[in-house]
Design a protein around this nucleic acid. Sequence first.
RNA 1: GUCCCCAUCGUCUAGCCCGGCCUAGGACACCGCCCUUUCAAGGCGGUAACAUGGGUUCAAAUCCCAUUGGGGACGCCA
Length: 477
Amino acid sequence: MASHKDSCSLNNKVRVRFAPSPTGYLHIGGARTALFNWLFARHHQGEFILRVEDTDSSRSTEEYIDAIIDSMEWLELNWDEGPYRQTDRFSIYKSYVEELLKKGKAYPCYCTPEELDQRRQDALSQGKPPKYSGSCRTIAEPIQGKPATVRFKMPQEGQIVVDDLIKGSVIFENNQLEDFIILRSDGAPTYNFVVVVDDIDMEITHVIRGDDHLNNTPKQIHIYKALGREIPVFAHIPMILGADKARLSKRHGSVSVMAYKEMGYLPDALANYLVRLGWSHGDQEVFTKKELIRYFSLGAVGKSAAVFNPEKLLWLNSQYINKSESRVLAEMVMPFLVRKGIVSEGERLDMEWLSKAIESLQERSRTLIELADSLRYYLLDYVEIDQEAKKKFLSRDMDRLAELKERLSGLALFTAAEIEKVFISMAEKHNIKLGDIAQPARVAITGNTVSPGIFEVMEIVGHEKALKRLSKVVEEA
RNA sequence: GUCCCCAUCGUCUAGCCCGGCCUAGGACACCGCCCUUUCAAGGCGGUAACAUGGGUUCAAAUCCCAUUGGGGACGCCA
């Protein structure tokens, strides 16, 4: 689709923001919104701003703020400004509330939460829209000493058009909109108001967010108008759903970004997967960060919601592991090796050797956890032998394994090529297939029936450990 | 209930804006085959979709309308 649409009417530098509320961990959906904003900013050489929407003091926590930041950092979504905190900016909001009050575009409301709740219930049960009546609009003089909120005076006739980059022109009837609260009785401003003030104050040019905000947009545009400010470009991106097409939530499995880190996913793989949910570039599936920045365009973002598919993410992760530098993987897998007790905390490994071991496992590991599990038989002295495998491959012809051990121990060069020669000559001598000797050896060395090529495995495991393991199974047979 | 959004294989999507090149392309998953010391990776092939009904048109997946289905929003949450 027309990518020129993205850049029309921007003489100024692109400034976008990601504005999570710290009432939970960064989840998959939020991460994608952040990613789209980040890509848009980087594509246009604009600025990406992080803003924490913590005006709900009862639900926001420091812990969540830190967790969101950790997740953003892990995904390498670096920001140019912030993190700003709305709780640091209350005086700014106050001044804007004053402005609206002075202009007669807002008014105090003395209705109590209980009254409002009751009216809402009544309206809903009668099948009527639960809209605020506007009863306090006509109160001429402020009532001293009575707790009040401040409501925005919404135009009650006409239409408002949201010109959305993704959804197109969306028309709302003003009489559907209510005089919503912009300032709580405790003096804290509310979301639909602060978001506008902040976007004005931070000179945000493009508001890119989930389409669950589309319905808020007409209210917000009216605030811009009442304040006489320029309206930014809106782009409402479709949501991510679970397999049952319901809004993605905990019951669909892991939804927090950090859970994917724990499960051994690479940040770039997750980002690649997420960006492809709603966005595409022809038939391409795997992108480098550079390519994403170069190709990304809001015009190529689809309109419909996407179902999160963990299997495709797993496949993408395997692609990333496969093509990553083994040195990089070596660093990344360390915490997993420690967690599994394969390596002890602070233990130094020969990283060159570890990289070599990893290279043999890259194309058969889909996550860092799988990689760490396989690394077990390279690192430990002895391996636990799978009982099934033992029964099948280590219950007969043990003479051959003994012979193999003898011949290998005489090898001057313990390399895959030399080891292979021994296997081949044994197969020829006994007139058996290579697998007939390779499989028992594999079980003896790795403890299981599945591994990279056994000659290569033996070389990496090394002369000493390999022979020790062979001896052990021969003795125990 | 009211308002808003959406609708191509099971899933992610290309194609739709600018109708013919679409007997609808790619990817995940699934199923075969090849390769092979196991498992992968890789290669080759297969099953599988334009929600329905009306228009408009010489021609519609593509434009219009309706229906149905799904999602979202209606808070002194964000």
